[in-house]
Amino acid sequence: MNDLSTVGLQLIDLLAAVSLLLAFGLLIQRRLTALIDFYALQSLVLVIVTSLVGWLTGQRHLYLSAALTMVLKVLLIPILLYRLVRRLRLETSHDTLVKLPATLLLGLLLVIFAFDVARPIAQLSTAIASGTLGIALAGILVGFLMMISRSRAISQVIAFLAMENGVFLAATAVTHGMPMVVELGIAVDVLIGVLILGVFLFHLQDAADSLEAGGPASPTARLERSGPETPKPRKARTQTP
C-alpha cells in the first residue's frame, strides 16, 4: 500500500471521528436550526468518506452513492427541514435538555460499549477502514440516545436521520457500500419517511393549536408545542468595556 492510500485510510478514520464528534454536537445542541446544520455537515462528511472509499477501492458505484447522499441528505432533507422549521416558526426556539451531564456520561458509556463490541470484529475485517465500524456504531448509539433524550418532534427526526447516517458510514467504510439497488431503495424509503414526518409535524401543530383553546395537555401537545414560544431569558451577556 503506497503512501497516498495510507493517508486516505487515515483520512477516512479522521472523518469518521469527525462524524462522531458531530453526533455528540447533535446530542448537546439546543438550537433547532443548528441541529439541522450539524446534520447537513455530518451528511457532508459521509459524502466525502464515500467518495474517498470509492477513489481508494476504485468502485465506481460509490461515486453514485456519494452523489445520492449529497443531493438527498446534504441538500434536500436539510432544506425541507429548514422550511419546516420556518413554517412552524421555530427558528429561535430551543429544545430542552434535561440533565445534560448525565446524558453525556451515558453517551460516553455507549461509546465504550460500541468500541468494545466492534474491536474484535474490526480486527477481522479485510475492508480498508475497519476501525470505522466502532465509530459508526458509536454514532448510531449516540443518535439513539439523542432520540430518547429529546422532547421535540423535529429533534427526534434529526436523531433518526443521524442514526441513519451512522448506518451508512458503517456500510461504506466496512463493506464498501451495499449493492446499488438496496441503496436506492433505502434512499427512497428515507426520503418518503422524512416527507411523512414533515406532514405529521404540520398536523401535530394544528392539533396542538386547537388544543390550546382549552382542555388538558395531550400527548400530541407535549410532543410538539408549536408557535412562537415565550422568549426565554436571554443569556447573560456581559458588557464590553
Binding site: L108, I112, F115, I135
Partner: peptide
C-alpha cells in the same frame, strides 16, 4: 467527554 472519547478512539 470529548477528551475521553479521544482516548477511546485512539485505543480503537
Amino acid at each position: 467527554v470529548l477528551a475521553v472519547i479521544g482516548v477511546l478512539v485512539h485505543i480503537l
